[in-house]
Amino acid sequence: MTIKSVFDIIGPVMIGPSSSHTAGAARIGRMARSILGEEPKSAQIYLYGSFAKTYKGHGTDRALIGGLMGMDADDSNIKTAPELAAKHGLDVEIRTGTGLEGTHPNTVHIYLTGVSGRKVFVGGSSVGGGNVLVSRINDFDVAVQGRYPTLLVEHTDIPGMVGRITTILGGSGINIAEMRTARNEKGAGAFTVIQTDQPVTEKVVTGIAGLPDIITVSKILPFREVI
């Protein structure tokens, strides 16, 4: 069991009203932006469970949009994020959905399109106290919490890929905290999620992107510790 800190009791600094419905939503939005890896141009957001029922009163929609624009959970601009998004040319559609029985009550699905036309699907949940879990990226089941620097690599499912990726990380002195590779069928696309102790540098991202059989590379910065 983790030993609590005084700052788990007093803190975090956040935009209200709810750590799960507002702060967590902003974090999922920001993670989706990182996964896309570029400025988003349009977003279709589907809310489920408690998110779908209470999003207006909790500003869940505003927080998600703020996150998509790169805002942290303590950014005062979250309140006016929809207006700011409209100004920036980010087209957002919010819908509520049903039929996701068995998933966490605070779940969101985001279909994101970037300025270059790149598309990504991100499914995530706000699991309490501002903590989040991204459980789906495109067709792959993942488990990303955003507490560590995270590298996401989509690649062809062939022998040696993981070794080549980790060699580049090791060469830059980046230690792997946790790693998981998922695939849908043998020999097709695979998705590797690597959580690291040190920040993932641009050089590493470029190095991995330059390897053969790599489809996409993106990284997620860990949540900034506020104050």
Binding site: I9, I10, G11, P12, V13, M14, I15, G16, P17, S18, S19, T22, A23, G59, R62, D74, S76, I78, K79
Partner: peptide, 21 residues
């Protein structure tokens, strides 16, 4: 109420009880 209007607060211990301390 600031919390309920999407203002910036410090959770203490939670957002819903942030005014007391």
């Amino acid at each position: 109420a600031l919390n309920a209007s999407m203002g910036k607060i410090v959770a203490c211990p939670t957002a819903g009880s942030c005014g007391i301390v």
